[in-house]
Amino acid sequence: MGLFLLRRVGMMILTALCLTVIVFVLTNLRPNLEKLAKTQGNFRMSDEAVASWLERNGYDEAMPLRYGQWLGVVPGWRQETDQGVTGRCLDGTIAPEAAARAPRFCGVLQGDWGFSTVFREEVSTIVAKRLGLTGKLMLWVLALMVPLALIVGVLAGMREGSWLDRGLSSLSIITTATPEYVSGVILIAVFASSSVGLKWFKGTATGAMDHANFENFFLPVLTIALYGMGYIARMTRASMAEVMAAQYIRTARLKGVSFSNVVIKHALRNALIAPFTVIMLQFPWLLNGVVIVETLFNYKGFGWTLVQAAGNNDIDLLLAVSVVSVLVVLTTQLLSDIGYVYLNPRIRIS
């Protein structure tokens, strides 16, 4: 088990490294840097001005070197001008004596995630704050989605082929076929539109960042939960139907145990192994939904930050965002594998 964990963690680090290299290369392509220079300086900068801006801000060095600086294995760039020294590890322009005392290395390994060019703030502060907001959203999504999906799945799989099964199965197919940007639009139009809708909820969740309540937070939570729910419910149904057809269930029924007792005491526990892994593996998809829903409802969480960073080619922020999302995806995969082993004693990790 220890070796298995070690290998998986090693794989995770390797994946994160490869991904950051890809993101780094793509965001540092020349046209992207020029766009960055223009958004940071002004849009009517001449080509020479762009080139000198890039040089002054250390974007001119070779890409492998700069990736090393971001990682913290290569000393940060420094430039001496008439006013003093500027550089990656330095705060603005400072005197040469002060610069000599500053650390040479400042990258991810030293815990410095860089500076966001869009939000003009430390990347680590932004990511922590935005992740907190998205965490709140995810928590409520899970609290709504998991019980709902399990109930729907168990009820549908309990008596395969019944009308209840057909109805609930159709419902889950419809929710899996509805991407968040469609269900969000429909939900807003029905429940929040000021012209024709029911006006039960608010169409934006900006207020929910500080004071989340049912009125401003339910629609975004529901939108994400609906898309993920269908898939989990279908898996639960399949697993439940399989268990209900097993011999020991028939034995229990023949012994005279009531149907509700058979379902709750005999079938449920075995039927819930498969959905557990499915729920864990849903996380990457939820992340996707979070980006769409946060954009649609203007909830400024992690997904919204991703869109802002990607749209403005904010290199440091984008790298941090991709590291975080890769870790989320791979950690949930790992947890689902481990959980599966604990829940199902027939599986062994070699």
């Binding site: 994946t15 991904l19 890809i22 993101v23 793509l26 965001t27 990457p284 992340l287 996707n288 980006v291 769409i292 997904g303 991703l306 869109v307 990607a310 749209g311 984008l318 965002v321 991709s322 999302s325 890769v326 995806v329 791979l330």
Partner: peptide
């Protein structure tokens, strides 16, 4: 697959 799809699209 570990990439968030939307980030990949933006890139």
């Amino acid at each position: 697959l570990a990439f968030p799809v939307i980030l990949l699209f933006y890139l």
